[in-house]
């Protein structure tokens, strides 16, 4: 591990889907989320690979569940950074509306006075990850802590996730979205486009077929302007992701990221989904 020379540090969790090499090169500390499969507990991305998870998911007898890491894990992470000479920490996490991660981090932060600022990204997966990367980059660029926070805030307004949900049953079971109550999708096959915006998962469109939903996803993406970063997301669907990549690769001047999304979100959306995380600039 490189020796931390910065006075400020960024902490996030594994649901932000920041690639490991990016996290290392920008000194981002990543707290892994926890999931339970058939009674056994795994650490996201460590004990179980994402590819393996999505492969096993359809055959699980008991629906998998996720857990927020304990307050202690956050405290230890913060503590270690302070011991290494960090003065202030910006801890960026997934939407507080959708997970207890933010609240757990806040509790841990109480032990460090004003030194830890916990930040609700209002996003999921790389919608959060992009904010994390931009904030970390601003530290590397030598900005003051307030400016780093402002960077995160500015990009929070410019991060957006659009996804195609292949099977609604997982999302419905998760109970995280209000519009997906009761018996929606009991009979007909439904492909659902969703967006993550202002901390919530909203319905964008519903179609009967994957192809129609896929084309709609691309047509929405093609309206996006001033794209700074773009990522193709998928839940154990590399072929679909490849197809999507080919269609959107020209939308972004920077290299495209392709991410098999965090198992913690995968549990709630099920396998076979694709999506885009985008960050725009002025």
């Amino acid at each position: 591990m490189t020796i931390k020379t910065s006075r400020f540090a960024i902490v996030t969790d594994s649901t932000a889907d920041v690639p490991i090499d990016t996290a290392e090169s920008l000194n981002i500390s990543v707290i892994p989320a926890v999931l339970t499969l058939d009674g056994e507990t795994y650490v996201d991305g460590l004990d179980i690979s994402r590819a393996e998870f999505y492969e096993r998911m359809p055959d699980l007898r008991i629906p998998p569940t996720t857990a927020v890491p304990s307050v202690l894990v956050f405290e230890e992470t913060y503590q270690r950074l302070f011991e290494n000479g960090v003065e202030r920490i910006l801890s960026i996490h997934l939407s507080a509306n959708l997970s207890g991660m933010f609240n757990t981090a806040e509790q841990a932060a109480l032990n460090f006075d004003e030194q830890v600022k916990v930040f609700d990204s209002g996003q999921l997966t790389l919608g959060t990850g992009f904010q994390v990367i931009e904030a970390a980059q601003s530290i590397v660029n030598g900005l003051e802590f307030d400016q780093v926070v402002n960077t995160a805030k500015r990009f929070r307004e410019r991060a957006y996730v659009l996804a195609l949900i292949d099977r609604l049953e997982f999302m419905r079971r998760s109970g995280r979205v209000k519009w997906l109550r009761a018996n929606i999708g009991d009979f007909l096959q439904i492909k659902q486009l969703v967006e993550v915006k202002d901390g919530l998962v909203n319905a964008v469109a519903r179609t009967r077929t994957y192809t129609k939903a896929f084309e709609q996803l691309i047509s929405i993406a093609s309206t996006w302007k001033n794209i700074k970063r773009l990522a193709v997301l998928h839940s154990g669907a590399p072929e679909k992701a490849k197809e999507l990549t080919e269609r959107v690769v020209n939308l972004c001047p920077n290299p495209l990221m392709i991410v098999n999304i965090t198992t913690v979100i995968g549990i709630h959306v099920g396998p076979g989904c694709v999506g885009l995380a985008v960050l725009t600039q002025d």
Partner: peptide, 8 residues
């Protein structure tokens, strides 16, 4: 009727 209900 059930199909309609399942669509909201």
């Amino acid at each position: 009727a059930r199909v309609f209900a399942s669509l909201g």
